[in-house]
């Protein structure tokens, strides 16, 4: 790495470390980690059927098909 690259990164690293420091100030045992960006719960749909794809459409992008099924390499190697 050149000196100029090191100078640039030193600055960036400083910003990153101070950001981590700020997070550590507020992250406490009683604050659960965020798993979803939107504060919503219970988003449901009714149990009503909707049209899907035909077998031809479903298999159209398959690398290989056989007997209207997706053909895939064998799952386990031989012993």
């Amino acid at each position: 790495m050149s000196d100029s690259e090191l100078d640039a990164m030193a600055g960036q690293l400083d910003v990153i470390l101070s950001a981590v420091g700020r997070v550590q100030q507020v992250a406490a045992a009683d604050i659960p980690p965020t798993s979803h960006a939107v504060p919503l719960t219970n988003v449901f749909r009714p149990d009503t059927a909707a049209a899907g794809l035909s077998a031809e459409e479903a298999l159209a992008a398959a690398p290989a098909a056989e007997q209207d099924r997706f053909r895939v390499p064998r799952i386990l190697d031989d012993e």
Partner: peptide
Amino acid sequence: RIHGATHSLVDY
């Protein structure tokens, strides 16, 4: 059976 198969076909 899965053992000795050359390939598999999947129905979703």
